[in-house]
Amino acid sequence: MTGLRITRSLVGPTLRATRQIPLLVGATLAAALVVAPAAGGTDLDVGSWAGLLRFAAMIAALGVTFVLDDPSAATTSVLPVSRALRYALRVAVAVPASVLGWLAAATAGHQVAVSHVSTPLRLPALTLEAATIFVLAVAITVGVARLRPDGSIGVVAAPVYLIVVGALYALPGRAALFVATTSAQWDEVHQIWGLLLIVSTSAAFLLAREPASRRRRGHPRVGNQTIRSDDPRVNAIS
C-alpha cells in the first residue's frame, strides 16, 4: 500500500473520529467576536479592532487542542502508520474551520477599518500572529500527546495552551509581543513572530515523531540480545 493510498484511506475515518465540536464552537466564537461589533457599528479605534482580532485568533486556535483526543489511542498507536501522519491528518481537519473563522473575523475587521478608521489595520502582520498562535497550539497539543498515551489530550493541552498564550499576552515592556499597531517596534516584533512561527512548526514536527523508545524497539530484545531474523526482509519491516 503506498503512502498516498494509506493517507487517502485514513482521511474519512480521521474526519469521523476527530472532535469537531470544540473546533466549530471556537471558530464560530472567534468570528462572532469581531463580526458582531462590526455589524453593530461599534465605535472602536484601530488598536481595539486589532485587539479583538488577536482575541479571535486565540479562541479559534483553542479548538485545535482537542483534535488529537483519541479514546482508541491504545490501539491506533500500534498501527503501521506513523504518528506524524496520523497527527498531520487530524490537524488538517482543524485547518478549514480555523481558517474560515479567522477569514470571517479578518474580513469584518478589514471592512470596518476601510470605512471608519483612518489608520491601517495591518492585517498581514495580524494574520502572521494568528498563524503562529495556531501552530503554537498544535505544537503544545502534540507535545502533551507524548505525555498522555491514554488519548485524553485536550483536557491538559487546552489549559497549557491558555497559560502559554496568556503569558505571551502579558509580556511587559520591551519583551511585549502583542504591540500596538502604532508601535515603532511593529516590524521588529513581527520578525520575532516569524521566528516563533518557525520554532513552533519545527517543534510540532519534532514532537510528532514516534518516541525514541518506540523507534529503538525496532527489533525485539531479550536481555542485552537483539533478536534478528535470518531473513533480511523481516528485519527491514521492523
Partner: peptide, 26 residues
C-alpha cells in the same frame, strides 16, 4: 461532560473582560 467547555468558557470570559477594557463604547 466535555473537557472542552471550560477552556472555551474561560477564554470567552477573559476576552469579554479584556475587550471591555479596550477604549470604546463598552
Amino acid at each position: 461532560r466535555s473537557p472542552a467547555v471550560a477552556p472555551l468558557a474561560s477564554v470567552v470570559l477573559a476576552v469579554l473582560i479584556l475587550a471591555a477594557l479596550l477604549p470604546g463604547r463598552l
